[in-house]
Simulated assay, not measured.
Amino acid sequence: MYKDRVFAEKRITITPFRFNEKVARVFDDMLVRSVPLYGEVLKQQARLARQFYKPGTQIFDLGCSHGNLGILLLDCFDGVVFKMIAVDSAEPMLRRFKKRLAVHDRHSCIDLACACIENIVISNASVVVINLTLQFLDAEKRDALIQSVFNGLCKDGILLLTEKTIHPDPQMNALEQEYYYQFKKENGYTDLEISQKRDALERVLVPETVAEHENRIQKAGFASFDVWLKWFNFTSMMAVK
Rank of each mutant, 00 (worst) to 15 (best):
I122F: 09
L72E: 11
K185Q: 15
F19Q: 07
F232M: 06
G39T: 07
F52G: 04
A144W: 11
S108E: 15
P92I: 07
E208P: 03
I146C: 08
K22Y: 09
D156T: 08
Q147F: 11
L192H: 10
T162Q: 11
Y179I: 10
R216H: 12
K98R: 12
A144K: 14
V32K: 04
K155E: 15
P55D: 13
D75E: 15
C109N: 12
C116H: 10
V210T: 10
E176Q: 14
V26A: 12
F234I: 13
Q182N: 15
I146G: 03
T162H: 03
N215I: 07
T133D: 07
A90Y: 02
S123A: 12
Y179C: 09
I194H: 04
G67I: 05
R142Q: 15
F222E: 00
I217E: 04
C116E: 11
A46S: 09
C109T: 06
A102C: 13
L160K: 03
I59F: 00
V121L: 13
N233F: 09
S123Q: 13
Q182G: 12
E91M: 13
Q51Y: 14
A125T: 01
Q135S: 10
N20M: 05
S65H: 07
V129E: 01
Y180I: 05
V129Q: 06
E186S: 12
V80Y: 10
Q135I: 12
T190W: 06
A115L: 10
V32I: 13
D29Q: 02
N187F: 13
D78F: 13
R95E: 15
V127G: 05
Y38N: 03
E214M: 13
L94D: 05
D138E: 14
V204I: 15
P16Q: 08
R11T: 01
K155C: 11
I110V: 14
K230M: 10
V210H: 07
L205G: 04
L69H: 02
V23S: 08
I166Y: 00
R5W: 09
F17N: 05
L42T: 00
K230Q: 13
S89E: 09
A115W: 02
C76T: 13
F150C: 10
C76Y: 08
G63S: 08
L175M: 11
A211S: 11
Y181P: 05
I130R: 00
I117P: 01
E212I: 01
V127T: 07
V121I: 12
D28I: 03
A90I: 05
D75K: 09
T235C: 15
I158F: 08
D191W: 08
D226E: 15
D28T: 11
L145F: 09
S34F: 02
E118W: 06
I71T: 06
W231G: 04
Q135N: 12
F52V: 03
N124H: 13
L42C: 03
S108W: 11
K241S: 06
A223S: 15
Y189H: 06
